[in-house]
Design a protein around this nucleic acid. Structure first.
Lengths: 227, 227
DNA sequence: GAACACAAGATTGTATACGATAATGTGCCG
DNA sequence: CGGCACATTATCGTATACAATCTTGTGTTC
């Protein structure tokens, strides 16, 4: 039943869970029992705990003492703060990326966009959102700023969670235009334009969230009631 | 020998180790054996591992598979990146802080500065550096930006490590002037000035490091040679 | 009938034990 | 005498077992 588990397992498990959260297969509030997770992945609680601790540090899960691990439910305040942090980091990073981007990088970014496009066409909105986040992370990597890229990776993951909770217009993510425009600026090595586009893109994202009143409903309760 | 250990222990241990790194009692490259640390704090390896994992996530220690945990030795590149990240985050945060700072906040900051002063006078350079970092973190907290404050906390801790490795002028930290000037700008609610002062303060810090050539010497080797 | 106290169950927190892996020391061979 | 192969040792990686804590169900009392 348990595959040979190629590498160090706790990292793999943490990434699997993170991906599930990212793709909204694990809704906010879900309980992640150590026994249960351990059985699913065929490992002991020890390694599960390590994975959960890592996710807790990234604020993707919340660890409550003697209660267990739950998929985090970002507060209104946290949602605002995450996007404010991104607004500080990403525009300047996009500018750096535009100044040093290569043809290979551009091709890679284009593949990301195409994959996102395809996922959306197939109705896999969760996966599309995940790939959309990858696009942002990739830009930070292109800027050759590993430290900042790491922060952005965290922020993108948390953004995914925030979108799961506070998204209002259930329609299409209007990101395609923004990402295409960013691509053009990057291809043209136009740093200032890329910076400006990224800035407004993040503002658009933030304003598309309903941060007025919608308190995060405890989805565990909703589960119990709905089904 | 072992105190009742008031709270959850792994957090406490992680903070104790972080403080020791911060104050340069644990030089970069030091090995942190699980058994050894566990014996010192009177706990099992389980909880030590949790603490070390947390520190590894903050990039204060490096975890090598089947080798153990070592106090991190930031690379030249990492040193540069950490200060670039701070340059993106802290100036704008200082501006926000200036706009919303209260009298109580000012008093607290002043106490920080005084304590730093006192530590320096008593020759406790390590503790002075630690308090100096606290000053920066406190500003982020005053800006009411928990998320960014968390990032800055990480970056300040890593900066301390970087200073331990790359500091060139062994003389006094020239921070006192910069921090006093910042205090004045904050007290005057002068956001733009605070932003500018923070920016140049960080640049000063970066330029006071010797990032030209000095490769981090493996201090374990140096220990062995020096006695 | 409602509220409190208590007990049973479940889940996490921690310690210990065993297996795997890498560093080190020893002996043989060239 | 130097270098390589192998055994030894120490340390980490993981699993399991026990203890502490919280939740929940039940019975009693007002």
């Amino acid at each position: 039943m348990d595959l040979p588990s190629r590498d160090t397992s706790s990292e793999t498990i943490a990434e699997d869970i993170a991906l599930a959260i990212h793709e909204h297969r694990l809704p906010p509030g879900s309980k992640l029992s150590e026994d249960e997770v351990g059985e699913i992945f065929g490992v002991s609680r020890t390694v599960v705990r390590a994975a959960l601790q890592r996710l807790a540090h990234d604020r993707l899960v919340e660890l409550r003492r003697n209660r267990g691990a739950f998929v985090a439910q970002p507060s209104l305040r946290e949602a605002r703060e995450v996007f404010e942090a991104r607004a500080l980091l990403e525009p300047r990073t996009a500018r750096s990326a535009a100044e040093r981007i290569t043809e290979a990088d551009l091709a890679l970014l284009q593949r990301h966009i195409d994959a996102e496009h395809a996922a959306l066409a197939e109705g896999e909105a969760g996966r599309a959102l995940y790939l959309s986040g990858k696009f942002h992370i990739e830009i930070a990597r292109i800027a050759d700023q590993d430290t900042i890229a790491e922060f952005i990776t965290q922020l993108v993951a948390r953004s995914s969670l925030i979108i799961a909770v506070y998204w209002q217009r259930r329609g299409a993510l209007c990101e395609r235009h923004a990402h295409h425009a960013l691509m053009r600026a990057l291809a043209a090595h136009d740093g200032p334009l890329a910076e400006e586009l990224m800035k407004s893109h993040l503002l658009d994202l933030l304003s598309s969230l309903d941060l007025r009143s919608r308190v995060a409903v405890p989805s565990s309760l909703r589960e119990a009631l709905g089904g």
